[in-house]
Design a protein around this nucleic acid. Structure first.
Length: 509
RNA sequence: GGCUCAUUCGUCUAUUGGUUAGGACGUCAGGUUUUCAUCCUGGAAAGAGGGGUUCGAUUCCCCUAUGGGCUACCA
């Protein structure tokens, strides 16, 4: 018997994984790596009403992108196949029978409508209906039936569910690795459904059985499960199983609504919640994820890892390997966290310096798309010039580099021209072109010549702005003399002439 | 309503029974630059409130407040 740590990530395929789910997967993965354990991926597809067909591939692709690779599970095989709960129905039924025999579970025939009306009745009185030890004796279940009636109902295919019979008056307790002691009296527990009327197990049952059968030693999951963890403990006790360690993770909250992130409330989130692109066939739309927005998976994982956990000390930029080495459950916080998109942006920028090669190929792709071709040497020069001006690897890069490849097709800072009047602008630009024609287009020489020719600083500034406007189309961009050198004499002069013509023809009034 | 969990700068957080409560993002100011970005320097910014315990509490305990989670034949 080995003492290997075994953890699992068990999403339900009811839609895309959001960043909260990814972080849960990440923490499980890091914990496994840190202690040489196994990380298992199980798909909890017990809810066929909410089933969304492309979620599974989404989950798999997301984990792959993040380099959170399972040791076992869906897509990876392993000794506990199948890792789909939908394919483990027979196993669950076996255990339900045990509970039934022990009298710890019972059949309930109340229809959905029955229970709804009860809820409404209770609500009218300001109460909340709960199917529990106080109410079950008045409801339509096998506890209140003669054996004959039960037999009749079962044999004539009445729809039923199977509920757990909670014994009141006990105090349940666990010691959560993160939250510490969690206590609750069974008086407040309801008789949860174990088997739905469609014959499928509910989360509580399937999850508990699978965790036991798959040898899960530590359960790391979101804090929203704290309220049912003691019910799960009850189940473990009923089956006589050793209770695993629990570690509930603080939730990631949305800043504007202060609610936990969920698949349903994507619309009012103040930050993207999907790791990668999600194609919703139901709603017929595509939502970009962090990958599409230009985040590096390393940066994405880094920022997620730091949400509720930190290795101590001031180091914030951590590779997966470093995370694996320093991860510990003890350093996870208890309070929920807000996701700061600004910090995520900054962090991604920190990674971009080490990603020049990727940027190079990305830029090359952008050029190919536009049927443009430049030498490797020239391209690398551009990359080195603009690497500190970009934060994301997305189409937006083009705005920072286009002027090295094509002339501007509009002038965003044309208001500058009004300040000095159009006539004067044309006059100046013509003078500039005359001067440039006599320069040698090398950075140092350009700079030296220009400065010595235009000694009056104010005039020089105006001239330089005019040139920049002609070359870039706005008053942004890298060192002007570098741009001139890069573009060369012919192209620079040509762009200035284009600007002159545009002003003459009042193309941008 | 019930059960349950939490609370350090705006945000992520460090640290501690005795500290000028530290860092990062953001923000503000200044410097660098022809411009934008980068970069550099500096500033503002926090222990929810009230009681205890203690020589001393942000740290330990209690209460209150605020916020979160759950309260489904969803996970």
């Amino acid at each position: 018997m080995s003492n290997t740590i075994r953890v699992r990530f068990a999403p339900s395929p009811t839609g895309p994984l959001h960043i909260g789910g990814v972080r849960t997967a990440l923490y499980n993965y890091l914990f496994a790596k840190r202690y040489n354990g196994k990380f298992i991926l199980r798909i909890e597809d017990t809810d066929d009403k909410r089933f969304v067909s492309n979620s599974e591939s989404y989950i798999l692709e997301t984990l792959k992108w993040c380099k959170i690779i399972p040791d076992e599970g869906v897509g990876y095989g392993g000794p506990h196949t199948p890792y789909y709960q939908s394919k483990r129905g027979n196993i669950y039924k076996l255990y339900i029978d045990k509970l039934l025999k022990k009298g710890e579970a019972y059949y309930a025939f109340d229809t959905y409508n029955d229970l709804c009306t009860r809820k409404i009745e209770y609500a009218k009185k300001g109460l909340v209906f709960s199917y529990d030890h106080k109410t079950r004796m008045y409801l339509n279940n096998s506890l209140n039936m003669k054996e004959k009636e039960l037999y009749h109902k079962l044999s004539s295919c009445y729809p039923y569910v199977i509920r757990y019979r909670v014994n009141p008056g006990q105090t349940l307790k666990i010691n959560d690795i993160i939250y510490g002691d969690i206590k609750m009296s069974t008086d407040y527990l309801d008789d949860k459904i174990l088997l739905k009327s469609n014959g499928k197990a509910t989360y509580h049952l399937a999850n508990t059985i699978d965790d036991y059968l798959m040898g899960i030693t530590h359960i790391l999951r979101g804090e929203e499960w704290i309220s049912s963890v003691l019910f799960h403990v009850l189940l473990y006790k009923s089956f006589g199983w050793k209770i695993p360690f629990f570690a509930h993770l603080p939730l990631i909250l949305k800043k504007n609504s202060k609610l936990k992130i969920s698949k349903r409330t994507i619309n009012n989130s103040d930050f993207p919640i999907y790791p990668i692109k999600w194609i919703s066939y139901e709603e017929n739309k595509i939502i970009d994820g962090y990958r599409e927005l230009g985040y590096f998976s390393e940066a994405f994982v880094n920022i997620l890892a730091l949400l509720g956990w930190n290795p101590g000390g001031n180091k914030e930029i951590l590779s997966m390997k470093e995370l694996e080495k320093s991860f510990s459950l003890k350093r996870i916080k208890k309070s929920n966290v807000f996701f700061d998109i600004k910090k995520a942006e900054w962090l991604n920028k920190q990674y971009i310096y080490s990603k020049k090669k990727e940027v190079y190929f990305f830029v090359k792709k952008l050029l190919n798309k536009r049927c443009l071709s430049f030498s490797t040497f020239y391209l690398w020069k551009v990359i080195n010039l603009i690497i500190n001006r970009i934060s994301f690897m997305n189409e937006g890069i083009w705005n920072d580099i286009f002027y090295f490849f094509v002339s501007p097709n509009f002038y965003t800072k044309k208001s500058f021209l009004y300040k000095i009047s159009f006539e004067r602008s044309i006059f100046y630009l013509k003078e500039i072109n005359y001067s440039l024609n006599n320069y040698i287009f090398l950075y140092n020489k350009l700079k030296k010549n220009f400065i010595s020719q235009y000694k009056d600083k104010n005039k020089r500034i105006i001239f330089m702005k005019l040139i920049r406007l002609a070359l870039v189309g706005s008053l942004k961009g890298v060192d002007l003399f570098i741009i001139l050198e890069m573009l060369g004499k012919k192209e620079s002069i040509r762009r200035i002439k284009v600007l002159i013509n545009n002003i003459k023809e009042k193309k941008f009034l």
